[in-house]
Write a protein that binds this DNA or RNA. Structure first.
Ligand SMILES: NC(=O)c1ccc[n+]([C@@H]2O[C@H](COP(=O)([O-])OP(=O)(O)OC[C@H]3O[C@@H](n4cnc5c(N)ncnc54)[C@H](O)[C@@H]3O)[C@@H](O)[C@H]2O)c1
Ligand SMILES: NC(=O)c1ccc[n+]([C@@H]2O[C@H](COP(=O)([O-])OP(=O)(O)OC[C@H]3O[C@@H](n4cnc5c(N)ncnc54)[C@H](O)[C@@H]3O)[C@@H](O)[C@H]2O)c1
Lengths: 211, 211
DNA sequence: AATGTTATGTGATTTTTATAACAGTTGTTA
DNA sequence: TAACAACTGTTATAAAAATCACATAACATT
């Protein structure tokens, strides 16, 4: 099976959520231009993405929302086994993310949390037990965790990411400002400072484009 | 003046921080392949970015770190006036970001925080006063704030972003999962769920590429 | 039935971004 | 001093992503 473009996957994730909202509102079909408007992108982009995943709409009625949501689910979520997630480093950011994930209705389920602070180990965070980082591999294997959210202090990022991959993690979402390199696992990084400085660069009177 | 590519700006932000670390360690020059290695990108990419901003390295010695940092600063930071930032919605995420920004050494300075919760208004968050959202425009003008970090509940995102732009904000970093559209202001959006679902898609045994 | 309208689906093209290839320069070594 | 090695700077090329342009289909209207 051919891998879909990264940007298409990103949009599929967004499509699914706005489609779910529409479905909850009682809508059963949607036009490409309607979906496009909800996300402020072009209708062609929507049609192309939907074409790529092999869904086909009805002319004059648009796309069947329920089927489309189901198909996106088959692509993003694991069809066979569930995809279990762990948060490594349950500090300020880790806890904010944990609560956010628990309140969202993504299919990913948070199975474990890790920290090295004795005060946190053994505690429950939003219903999820915090394990000792020393037991990382054991728990990851036992709970069949494939995705890790890395929110430890920067100085530990490299070492712990390697241990995560060694334990069998297949993908890491890295929120530390340290650039990582993984062998044989998918890596996604997000850097807050970079985003803000990018806004700072473009949000200047001299860059008249947006003003 | 020609606008630089978005991706180049993103990398410049990262270059600056690792360069600062190197400078603090006593290094005064760096080769493109060394800088590349620190960020896990290619040396060509580094050289191209540096070429685009008009810095020129010394053959056999590499790039002068101090000059390079200064030049990146002139590009990203506002040279004339300072760039002041506000956080709108000082909840879980807003507070985590605030502490993170305060502890980082970015040039952007956090000037104000806004909320609509009476318990928070008037309080200090990491040394920054929380204002009533009703005074948004007044304070933004008074403090000359040009950049806003939006972390309010999703249902308020659209309305408040419009008010921010109306108040004179030139760029918004939107962390709500609601897709926005601004008139005459730069917009950057980050969606946690999208990132995670992207990792979920690529972190599957069937996508052997990374395994 | 002919015509107009408004969708989808997709090949062609453009734009953006990254990589490859290499010319030119400086110092080193034999 | 000639050959070599190791850098930078930049043009050319490729790859990824977005957009354009339009063929085609379904339905409404006359
Ligand atoms: N707070 C933010 O908004 C924010 C934003 C972007 C990036 N970050 C990055 O995210 C990471 C976490 O930030 P934070 O603000 O939550 O910091 P924090 O100090 O509040 O949390 C870090 C957590 O990691 C734990 N920890 C430390 N060493 C560990 C180890 N070896 N193994 C396991 N757990 C360990 C600590 O006990 C703590 O609970 C940092 O790298 C930070 O740079 C934070
Ligand atoms: N927590 C996370 O990790 C996370 C991650 C990604 C995105 N988000 C998004 O970021 C936003 C904030 O998330 P959170 O977890 O911090 O929520 P939160 O409820 O903890 O914080 C929201 C804050 O906004 C304030 N607020 C509400 N209405 C307001 C208004 N009209 N004007 C000004 N302030 C107002 C509230 O008083 C509160 O302080 C949400 O849109 C959420 O979806 C959160």
């Amino acid at each position: 099976m051919k891998l879909l473009p990264e940007r298409t996957i990103e949009r599929l994730s967004k499509y699914r959520r706005v489609l779910q909202r529409e479905l909850d509102n009682g809508t059963d079909h949607i036009y490409s231009h309607e979906l496009a408007k909800l996300l402020h992108i072009t209708p062609v982009q929507v049609r192309r993405d939907i074409m790529l995943i092999g869904h086909t709409g009805t002319l004059r009625k648009g796309y069947g929302i329920e089927n489309l949501i189901k198909l996106i689910g088959e692509i993003i979520d694991c069809s066979s086994s569930e995809q279990n997630v762990a948060i490594i480093g349950i500090g300020k950011l880790g806890q904010a993310l944990l609560e956010y994930l628990n309140s969202s209705n993504t299919r990913l389920n948070l199975s474990a949390v890790f920290d090295n602070n004795p005060d946190k180990i053994g505690d429950s965070f939003g219903g999820t037990l915090c394990h000792n980082i020393d037991n990382l591999k054991k728990i990851i294997i036992r709970e069949n965790i494939t995705i890790g959210i890395l929110t430890v202090p920067p100085e530990y990022a490299k070492e712990i990411s390697a241990r995560m991959v060694d334990a069998g993690i297949l993908g890491i979402m890295n929120y530390t400002p340290v650039s990582l390199k993984l062998d044989h696992a998918f890596l996604e990084e997000y850097d807050v400072i970079t985003s803000l400085e990018k806004v700072a660069y473009f949000a200047k009177p001299r860059h008249a484009e947006f003003l």
